[in-house]
Design a protein around this nucleic acid. Structure first.
Lengths: 237, 237
DNA sequence: CGAAACCTTGATATACTTCAAGTTGAGTGG
DNA sequence: CCACTCAACTTGAAGTATATCAAGGTTTCG
């Protein structure tokens, strides 16, 4: 099922500049590079499952990933996205717990796997790396806290607007002036980010279209009026 | 306004066993202990404000603290609670950002303040401490993720039940067999945890009373039937 | 080309919010 | 210590955003 591919070396990895491995010493980089494996995932393939034990760190080389949890009624909740350069699954690795979420490729992806031992070696020896990692983790926590406020206090309409803007930030692609959200999300996925029903997402998107805030091309969404959306989203206004 | 008190030394601090400072070397403990200050806060006093710069770490010696953010319409959202032994504000300190939330004493409290420099000294020198801290932070992140699912997928009724059970875990007090939630929370506070209107909390609590799940004594809530509440909360069922 | 998954629209139901008014309780100053 | 005041709590009634159920249309993919 999984297709191992010839490892891209970390030294040559173009995604490394966006990654926490950016400023690693040659020595440590070599440790990682020599011991990691590199795997191709097809769209829809799961990279790791909630409830299983983490054996190492995943590092996205190519592709777009969703991180999600299964809620009580079998309805999934999308918590986060991964893009090239991002670490996946480090949280469970460092808290020494089971994965609290699953990760799935939203499109064909290439992902490197660094065994726990090698990652921990760097963790123990490179103090700058730990500091950066800690900084990043704490920053992530702040983002999660904002998500909590959004969910607790905003209407679905507001949350959908917020989500569209956030997706634009992460996955935007210039299209003759306006910004297309370049990610293969089903309406159901969108609903699972916002925390609502699929039908509601569809209805609200239709409203946004009438209001000239967005346009759609098939499943792809184009942001026409970000300021208008921001007003609806009520960004900390 | 703030009342500095003679510092409790960390060496003698009874809350330290619940804290991340538990296994610090004598040397480092001494550094912290000598440089920290200790302050008394009255009920309702703010310990730090959202949007300000963190200058050090707060460590709760006595009392109960709420951590909250102000949402867009002036409605606050309670994100977390602090109890003796807990660190406050380390997230912003480590991510080198402004405080993303405020902290307020829910009852009279005694809180120590460790200047950033001394905390960072320990952070840089004690590898075991960093590992424990990282573990703790990553664990906290998992909790936040669960909160996101709860907010996104559960009804207010389910969330209230969940919240009551979580509060029981954190602040329970045995009262002739049943468990009282021993914390001075207004109905509005409760609403600001659950993410709903005050009136809704009141109505749902009334329902829970009829269903013999809880009892109230003034503002205090007594959990009569935790299993019944868990069934409503639908803990990952 | 056919089946399955996904998208869309409509009708109905309801959990929750909001507004309004009355009651209780807690804290303060005389 | 009592009375006064303001905040917190409570109940009711009306409105609404969103969920749910149902059915038809469209894309995707083997």
């Amino acid at each position: 099922m999984l297709k191992k591919v010839e490892s891209v070396s970390c030294e040559e990895c173009h995604s490394r500049n966006n990654s926490l491995f950016k400023d690693l010493s040659d020595d440590h980089l070599c440790t990682i590079s020599e011991n990691k494996t590199c795997t191709k995932y097809k769209k829809g393939q799961v990279i790791f499952y909630e409830g299983t034990r983490p054996l190492g760190l995943f590092c996205v080389n190519e592709g777009k990933i969703k991180i999600y949890k299964d809620g009580s009624q079998g309805k999934e909740q999308i918590i986060n996205f991964g893009k090239p350069g991002d670490f996946l699954g480090y949280r469970a690795l460092l808290s020494e717990e089971l994965y609290a979420a699953s990760a799935m490729a939203l499109e064909d992806a290439k992902i490197c796997f660094v065994p726990k031992a090698d990652f921990m070696k760097v963790f123990l020896e490179d103090h700058q790396f730990v500091k950066k990692l800690m900084k990043s983790v704490c920053h992530e926590m702040g983002i999660l806290e904002s998500k909590i406020i959004n969910l607790a206090q905003k209407s679905v309409r507001e949350r959908l607007a917020t989500t569209l803007l956030l997706l634009k930030e992460t996955y935007s692609m210039e299209t003759s002036g306006s910004q297309m959200i370049d990610i293969a999300l089903s309406r159901e996925d969108l609903a699972n980010i916002v925390g609502t029903a699929t039908e509601t997402v569809i209805r609200l998107l239709a409203e946004f279209k009438v209001e000239q805030l967005i346009a759609t091309e098939g499943k792809k969404i184009i942001i026409l009026n970000p300021k208008g959306l921001a007003k609806i989203a009520d960004f900390y206004g």
